[in-house]
Structure formats: C-alpha cells, structure tokens
C-alpha cells in the first residue's frame, strides 16, 4: 500500500502544473470558486489530521507517561525499559526477526509462480484466479478454517499420517506454532503478491525474452538475467508490501488461531499492543509498544523510499 503512495506523488506533480490553466480562470471566478479547493479538501483534512496524525503525536507523548497509580505523570523511558524486560515483548521482537528471515521465501514463492504463469504452463489461465482467492478472505475466516485443519486430529495430520509422518501438534507446540501461523499467513497472502508480479510481467519487454530464447538460455538463466533485472521495481514493491503485511495484518490470525500462545510463543508486536490496551488496561505501556512498532515500520518505509529513489535514477 505504501509504495502506491509514491507513484501517486509522481503522478500528482505534472497534475498541479497542468492545473495552472484552470487557476487563471479561477482568479476571474467568484469567491466561492476560489474557496473550492478548501471546501473539497476540508473533510479529508479534518479526518486525516484529527484521527491519524494527531493520535500519532498523542500516542508518542503518551508512551512517556505512567499507567495505574502514575497515570498522567511523566516517567521518561520507564515504559520502554519495562518492554525490554518483558519476555512476551521480547518474544514478539524475536518473531519479527523470524518474519524478516522468512521474507525472501514469502516473496520468492509468488515470484516463481507468477513466472510460470507468465510462461504459460499448462492450466495457466486458471491459476491466477484460484491463487488470488484466499487473499480476499479475512484473517479471521482463514484462521478459523485452519483451526479445524491443523487440529491434532484434523485433516492435515491425517494427510501426513497417510505419508507415514507422525502427527504434529501444530498450534499447541511452542516451537512449532509460530511457523504454523506464519505458514498460514503466507498461504493466505501469496496470491496478493502473485497478482502484483503478474502486473509487472505485463510491462515486460517480450523482445528480451525472445532474444534469450534465441540465445538458448535455460529457464533459470532467463529468470536470473532477464526477468529479475527487468522487474526490479516490482520486486522491491512486493518486498516492502509483504513486510508491512507481516507486521500489520497478522493480528486476526494470531487472535483466532493461538491467542498468542502456547506459552506466549506466537506474540507479535501488534498483538502485544492489543493485549496491553484491551486486556491488561495498561494504555501507556501499549503506547510504548506502538511507538516501537512504528519505528520498525519507519525503517521499512525509509528503506523503501531510498530503494525506489535509486531505482528511479536507473530508469
């Protein structure tokens, strides 16, 4: 979602110069006409400033105050120290590290599948529609379904049993559960990245592929030397959106599938924020966790901007 913003900036720049002609007419227009931009933008500005930018400032401010008895008092970095001392928050951070490590896999799978669909494997017309489908389902629905599928006596273990593999307690084993949750997240969202990749392929110069074919390049060579360089912008976009998705849209899955358990092993920062705010009634501590999450997002966002800038210069 974030990278779309950048493209909109690009698009909006010529727009405002193109609007110069109409502004000349505006000056001759009535007062009401001159106020038009203000009128048209007022609701949007009110909503965004009041319910997004202002809460961000409030929240950061809030994270330096206390909970309970110390409500409203300035406590400096106490909440942040509490966070670092909390095993649940440390687990949440460790799980973010795990997500970062798994990110290349989560990008490579849809990338490869899109490549094969683009190269017209048998049945390619069908796959896009089928693979994209889970991406529109709510994490709640997906989580509820996989609660049934991954139950100890559920279909997935039955399938493994048929292959001679002993059953695994997917959602009950602290060493396994986070992988099960992330796996389900990837299952549910790879179609999103796949569709983005296919849109990238649509812009690919087919003469390059023909040239590679004439030169007798193998499929891996074609992917590595022709497709990857041509799609660098799309690949970066998918990397960033996938990472943001992992950081901000797994709440529903964790909430439904494990509730953070077993033994707190599936905590993620967003789930930690929710528990502290909604269940433990520690809003200031929750704000500190929010701010920490925001810093992580900011790093991702800034990395994206610098990468896209560099990519823009190459164009």
């Amino acid at each position: 979602m974030a990278a779309q913003s950048l493209s909109a900036v690009d698009a909006a720049v010529p727009a405002s110069t193109a609007g110069a002609a109409s502004s000349r007419r505006n000056r001759r227009g009535s007062r009401a006409e001159r106020l038009a931009p203000l009128v048209l933008l007022a609701p949007a500005v009110l909503v965004i400033a009041g319910l997004r930018l202002w809460p961000l400032v409030l929240g950061i401010n809030f994270s330096f105050t206390g909970d309970g008895d110390r409500n409203g008092l300035a406590v400096g970095f106490d909440n942040y120290l509490t966070l670092l001392g909390d095993p649940l928050f440390r687990t949440a951070l460790r799980n973010v590290g795990l997500l970062v490590l798994l990110l290349p896999v989560a990008v490579a799978i849809p990338g490869l599948l899109a490549t094969f669909i683009f190269l017209k494997v048998p049945g390619h017309r069908l796959y896009r529609g089928v693979y994209f489908f889970p991406a529109v389902l709510s994490p709640v629905i997906v989580g509820a379904i996989f609660n049934l599928l991954l139950a100890f006596d559920g279909p997935f273990n039955a399938l493994l049993g048929g292959l001679g593999i002993p059953p695994v307690d997917w959602l009950g084993d602290p060493d396994v559960a986070i992988f099960a949750v992330v796996g389900v997240h990837v299952w549910a969202t790879f179609g999103m990245a796949l569709v983005v990749f296919l849109a990238g392929f649509a812009t690919l110069d087919s003469s390059l592929l023909d040239a590679a074919k004439v030169d007798g390049a193998s499929l891996p060579q074609t992917i590595w030397h022709v497709i990857v360089p041509s799609l660098s912008r799309t690949i970066q976009f998918v990397f960033v959106t996938t990472m943001i998705g992992m950081l901000t849209s797994m709440f529903g899955l964790v909430y439904v599938m494990t509730s953070g358990g077993p033994e707190g092993s599936t905590y993620l920062p967003e789930y930690y924020v929710w528990i502290q705010q909604g269940q433990m009634n520690q809003p200031a501590l929750a704000s500190a966790a929010s701010t920490a999450l925001f810093l992580i997002m900011l790093v991702v966002g800034l990395a994206q901007i610098s990468i896209l800038r560099r990519a823009g210069k190459e164009d």
Binding site: S5, L56, L293, L298
Partner: peptide, 12 residues
C-alpha cells in the same frame, strides 16, 4: 498518514 498503521495509533 498512509505510513501510519492502525496498531500504532489505536491506543490514543
């Protein structure tokens, strides 16, 4: 505003 996820502003 686009870069601010809900989780970050939900408490305030």
């Amino acid at each position: 505003a686009l870069f601010i996820p809900f989780q970050v502003i939900m408490v305030p």
